[in-house]
Write a protein that binds this DNA or RNA. Structure first.
Lengths: 311, 311
DNA sequence: CATCTGATG
DNA sequence: CATCAGATG
């Protein structure tokens, strides 16, 4: 009988690959692509806030779960980068082998680093950087946790930048046990870095920390992303030398979400979750100017988040 | 590791199912759907030809490989039926379990019969009939050949109508051996029916009979649909009491194709194949008024074909 | 309701 | 270059 399932030939290595910018042609986008897309011209949230020391931002970071970088590209994602021009940007859920990432995903002026795992079309993270980077590493140096293209660490002069896509616990929490192993290992990884230089950890952390961080906390206590276990593991990190920079700036802001299910027009109704974060070492606190949730930006089921730092 | 292939739970039975018309609401179609679609108003090939006995047609038959009946529905396929209003119509490649065929696929005034096989989303044929049918059967009464939803036979007062989707020999001709078994068995099946009543056999026969029946005969002699074996098996039937009704009317018409690959704008360039036929018992010859290839009708990679009969 | 892969045509 | 299924989120 036809249509037999075929196992994918395992291409190991989450070592990642590096590209430099090629060309930056402004491509036309078809009508179909525009439907789910961010328009070419956008009014983006900006900020005049200064740091605790009254300094203006010197570095702009962006983190965005793009839900398939090839789809994101068709959805006019590049226009966002052109307008926002972050110094350092990271992607989660590329859903694309690192060797198949389109060249257009490395705009002029950036260096790019991509990491993907064994399973084609699953997970995958990327990094764009204008700022000179000292060293880029992939994974957290634990083989069992480095098979899915989830972490890129970039060492800069004054900090480590850790871009991550934390494992989803899955439907019926099938992967919650693994997630807990991950959380413990990742916590240690952050601590290790933090001993050397302050850390900026960001990405889709796949956890809404408190009830304020999702629209329906009561009905989601058994849903991946808001279980007691995931929340507590996150709390442990935040009680161990790190802060949730958004809540540091906006401790009481409600309905601030970065993810909305594609189902039932959840985004229009703002039935969402805050799953994307910039978590930073305590000692970077005084450098934070602002953290933005750009929920006006489309092109994925997550929106981009921005960290503005005076450093 | 995630994403393990899962075997489909086998739903046996190609026995088919029967529906009667429900409602016929005229649904709106979105812009996206219109891109590949037939417009709501169409100018269709019509015909004033009379039969050899100078009679006007009394019955209109349509055969159409719809390449997914759910996609075809979105592509505005119903508008075609509303305008053309065939007495008897058949579909090939429904790519849909018979229990999941949308109700809209049975327009008012028609009875419908659907047959699908073990493999979800593969093959599948359907029949719509306004004319009263005596008996409908599924398959060719050979278990090994009746697992893929390929044949519906409808007995009418004066003839058998056999709607079929003949097995594709596949890339690299992997299924040519099976196809040859099929061809032999199917030949016998037609002969058996023909002894009782004249036969109208139609559908996607997955063979271009002669060089005139495809755009590039020279480069396709090893391609499924134009191998020596498939062509000879078809010839055997046509030398055994049946005629290719289109060639009977139009023996020399070139570039008359019913299928075009989606690749490389083949349809715009008319790089096509004639794979869809009305093959009829010799003794129906004098009843044929016309056979139409409606290559102006979109919504699939095949176009519909029409048989007009005075009977 | 999106993305992706992989099978199929 | 389409369809579909099935995995995943």
């Amino acid at each position: 009988s036809p249509k037999k399932p075929v196992k994918k030939t395992a291409t190991t290595s989450t070592q990642g690959s590096q590209n430099t910018a090629a060309d930056g042609d402004d491509e036309e986008v078809s009508d179909t692509q525009q439907l789910n897309a961010t328009p070419r011209t956008m009014i983006l949230k900006t900020s005049d806030r200064l740091s605790a020391k009254n300094e203006k931002p010197t570095l702009k970071f962006v983190s965005w779960n793009v839900n398939g970088i090839r789809a994101w590209l068709k959805n006019n994602g590049l226009a966002y980068i052109q307008q926002e021009a972050p110094d350092i940007m990271c992607f989660q859920e590329m859903k694309c082998d690192k060797l198949q990432v389109p060249n257009d995903c490395t705009p002029p002026g950036y260096k790019s680093y991509w990491s993907s795992g064994d399973t084609a079309g699953y997970s995958g993270v990327g990094l764009l950087t204008k700022k000179d980077v000292i060293k880029v590493t992939f994974g957290i140096d634990i083989e069992e946790h480095d098979k899915e293209g989830r972490v890129i660490t970039a060492e800069y002069d004054k900090f480590y930048f850790v871009a991550s896509y934390i494992p989803n616990s899955g439907r019926k929490l099938v992967r919650l046990p693994y997630r807990q192993e991950w959380d413990a290992a990742f916590h240690l990884y952050l601590k290790k870095l933090d001993k050397i230089k302050p850390v900026i950890w960001c990405g889709d952390l796949n956890v809404a920390h408190q009830s304020i961080d999702l629209c329906n906390p009561k009905t989601n206590t058994k849903t991946s992303g808001f279980t007691k276990e995931e929340r507590e593991n996150f709390s442990k990190i935040l009680n161990d030398g790190f802060i949730d920079s958004y809540r540091y700036i906006y401790p009481d802001t409600v309905a601030a979400y970065t993810f909305w299910s594609y189902f039932r027009q959840a985004r229009e109704k703002n039935i969402g979750w805050r799953l994307d974060y910039f978590v930073i070492s305590d000692r970077l606190k005084e450098h934070v100017c602002d953290v933005l949730i750009q929920n006006e930006v489309y092109g994925s089921d997550h929106c981009p988040i921005v960290l503005l730092l005076a450093i």
